[in-house]
Design a protein around this nucleic acid. Sequence first.
DNA 1: TTCGAATTTCAATGATCGTTGAATTAATCC
DNA 2: GGATTAATTCAACGATCATTGAAATTCGAA
Lengths: 122, 122
Amino acid sequence: MKPVFHPDIEDVAPADVFAALADPIRLGILVALSDVNEVDKARCSHFTAFASPSLLSYHFAKLREAGITRMRVEGTSRYLSIRRDELNQRFPGLIDSVIETARRDPNLPRLGPEWLSGSGGA
Amino acid sequence: MKPVFHPDIEDVAPADVFAALADPIRLGILVALSDVNEVDKARCSHFTAFASPSLLSYHFAKLREAGITRMRVEGTSRYLSIRRDELNQRFPGLIDSVIETARRDPNLPRLGPEWLSGSGGA
DNA sequence: TTCGAATTTCAATGATCGTTGAATTAATCC
DNA sequence: GGATTAATTCAACGATCATTGAAATTCGAA
């Protein structure tokens, strides 16, 4: 399949990043990803509790097109991860304070505790 | 006049803040404000280079309603400042990394050097 | 080679966005 | 009072947004 598009991190503008963060579902996805980022075992279908498949697809694309996440295709599955190193190089410190801010928001959608089985860490 | 509405900082959700930051004009305003924040001598009309008065009014309201700025009314003028202390209490570290990120964006609207006459500091 | 699971795409919706320009409000100065 | 200045409000516009549900794609497995 055609390999999913990811913008060069240098082409990403701050306003684009903030636009992608301006949604509770996407912030919930970001926090969940940050809990498990060491391995990229975060399959898209793990987030079905957050929204319908088609809506999830929409939100995943927003995060990806804003340069926030990377999507690896493997068979019929897609695996997500945060582009931490690139983001920290381009916007030093930003993504960490964003995640920390989102993590404290009690109104974001969350995944159950079995999600953290891989001993994640921000 | 009816004193401008400012949301309680505890009522502000992260997604609201990011939505307010998802615009180049508003990021430009934020950076300019951060250059001069010690005194609040930032009058609205100082930003006429950024957009028309009516559009500025719209963007000022967005920043204010998201809890990012405070607006002080004095005569026919309004003076703006960043709600730094409250933001840092509610979202520790966030506003500083946002400003630092925005400050490095070469594509944001900017004010001339006479703006920094008051020896501002982020 | 058909089946099923994972995900995307498409068309449609109502809501909100950024922008414009004209009209309005409110305070100040003569 | 009347004019001026500072800023907001309002109605309109096209564009984008989040969401839905149905249809299409893509791959792996039986």
